[in-house]
Structure formats: C-alpha cells, structure tokens
C-alpha cells in the first residue's frame, strides 16, 4: 500500500485483497507466538466481546420482536400463526442471527480495533515495540484477531437466544399464540446440526474471522495520519459489510 501508488481502481483493490490475504497468513503464523500474551487476548476478548453484549442483546430482542409481529400478521392470512415460532427460530438461526450480529460486531468492535491500531501506528507505538523486540503482530494483531474469532459465535448465540425470547414475547405474551404450540412447532422443525451448528456456529465463526481480519488489517496498514485513520475506520465498516453479505450467500449455498 505504501510501496507504490496505483491509479487504477481494479489493481488497487486487487492489491488490497492480496495484501489482506498475506496479512492473514502473517497473523496466523503469529498466533503461536502470541501465546505468551494470553492476557492481552483476554483483555481484547473483554473489549470486543463482553463490551458488545449490550448492543447485541438489545438488537437481538428487537429483531425477534419485529419478526414475531410481522410473521404473525402474514401467517394469520393463511391461518398459520402456529408456525410463528418455527419461522422466527429458523430465520434467526440461519440468517439474521449470524448476519446481523456480524454487522453490529463490525460497527461496534471492528471500528474500535481499526482506530486503536491505526493510532498506535500513527503515534509510533508499533515502531517502538519493534525497537523493544516485541513482535507487534504477536502482541497487537493476533490477540485482536483471536478475540474476534472467539467472541463472534458467543455473541451470535446470545443474539439468537434474545431473538427467540423477543419472538416469544410478542407472539405468545402479546398476540396470544398458544405457548405450547409455539415451542413444540419450533422444536419439531429446528435441527441441532443443520440449523444451530451449521447456521449459527460455522457462519458466525467465519464472519468473526472476516471482520476481525479486516479490522486488524485496516488498522495495521492505515496511513499514519488522522485522516488515514478516519478512512481506515470507514473502510473497515464498508469492507466488512460487503464481505459478510457476500460470504453469507456462499456459506448458505455450501452449508444448507
């Protein structure tokens, strides 16, 4: 990126993707070396995971509630309100849970990681680490990547659970679907392997890896100016969102 300036948009974005791929290899290679900084990984996990809980839970609740409300009204046309629980659960597990969690995660945690690393570079902290023989890939990049990888599936599970609760709240408590019908239709249809492992776990792991990689990469390669950090933060959100939605299609085609 700082090696040469290309005017061509295509070759510039190709170069970005290529650098990102190489960066992924470097981070993966640095993961074993980051073992001694386990505490830093835990701190990052706290920052990107535990601190994101509030927004994830709130959004999960509202997504579930609005799904319950919409589905109840549409399904009542066909006399099928009993299927509300099923459809809420399936749509949250298979699509909305992983995708919305990943988008929120990119906005909440990815931007913060990018800005933090970008400022570290701008204020020469990373250069200082190198001088002190501390590998910045192992100390800065790898813990944040690992934290994103671990936090995403957990956040997604919380999101899904709150979504089901929201759907139950609207469907059963407010709109009067029978409680037993709601749960039994859901448990009849949802398969552990197909929906929860393939839908929730694998997808959110993949999204977590992608968002964390993009966030760390953009921060790590940001131009060391305040403008550069601002652009890098924006690019994190844009690139993550596109990558999540594109990857979602591919993963759905493979996993379902």
């Amino acid at each position: 990126m700082n090696a040469r300036v290309d005017d061509n948009v295509v070759s510039r974005s190709l170069a970005q993707i290529g650098e990102c791929g190489l960066f992924l290899l470097k981070v993966l290679a640095a993961i074993p070396r980051s073992g001694r900084y386990a505490r830093e990984t835990v701190r990052q996990l706290w920052f990107v995971g535990a601190m994101s809980l509030t927004i994830i839970m709130t959004c999960g609740l509202f997504v579930g509630m609005v799904l319950g409300l919409q589905l109840y009204h549409v399904l009542s046309i066909f006399g099928g309100t009993a299927a509300t629980g099923t459809v809420v659960a399936l749509s949250i597990y298979r699509e909305l849970g992983p995708v919305v969690t990943a988008l929120l995660f990119a906005g909440r945690a990815g931007t913060a990681v990018t800005a933090e690393i970008g400022l570290m570079r701008a204020t020469d902290q990373i250069a200082a680490m190198e001088l002190m023989a501390v590998d910045p890939l192992a100390y800065v990049a790898a813990p944040r990547f690992l934290a994103g990888l671990i936090a995403m599936p957990l956040l997604c599970c919380v999101f899904c659970a709150l979504g089901i609760f929201g759907g139950h709240l609207v469907g059963v408590s407010w709109l009067g679907i029978d409680n037993g019908t709601f749960w039994s239709n859901m448990t009849d249809t949802v398969e552990v392997w197909q929906d929860i492992v393939n839908g929730v776990i694998w997808k959110s792991l993949a999204f977590g890896a992608v968002v964390a990689l993009i966030a760390v990469f953009q921060g790590y390669t940001a131009p060391p100016t305040s403008e550069g950090v601002a652009y890098a933060t924006t690019r994190t959100v844009v690139a993550s969102s596109i990558a999540i939605l594109a990857l979602d299609f591919v993963l759905t085609a493979f996993l379902m």
């Binding site: 920052f47 535990a50 599970c157 659970a161 448990t187 398969e191 552990v192 929860i196």
Partner: peptide
C-alpha cells in the same frame, strides 16, 4: 475486573448456545 467480565461473557455465550441447542431444537423432543 475485565477478566471477570470476559469470563461472564464466555459463560453467557455458552449458556445461550446450550439453550438454543437443547430447548429450541429437536433435541428437546
């Protein structure tokens, strides 16, 4: 404090996973 928070977060995440897998899926039947 952050270690405790992280631990709580991980426990909560796995609790949610356990809930999804056992209470809302066919395993419950």
């Amino acid at each position: 404090s952050y270690a405790v928070g992280t631990g709580l977060f991980i426990v909560l995440g796995f609790a949610a996973l356990g809930y999804l897998a056992t209470q809302t899926s066919s395993v419950a039947n």
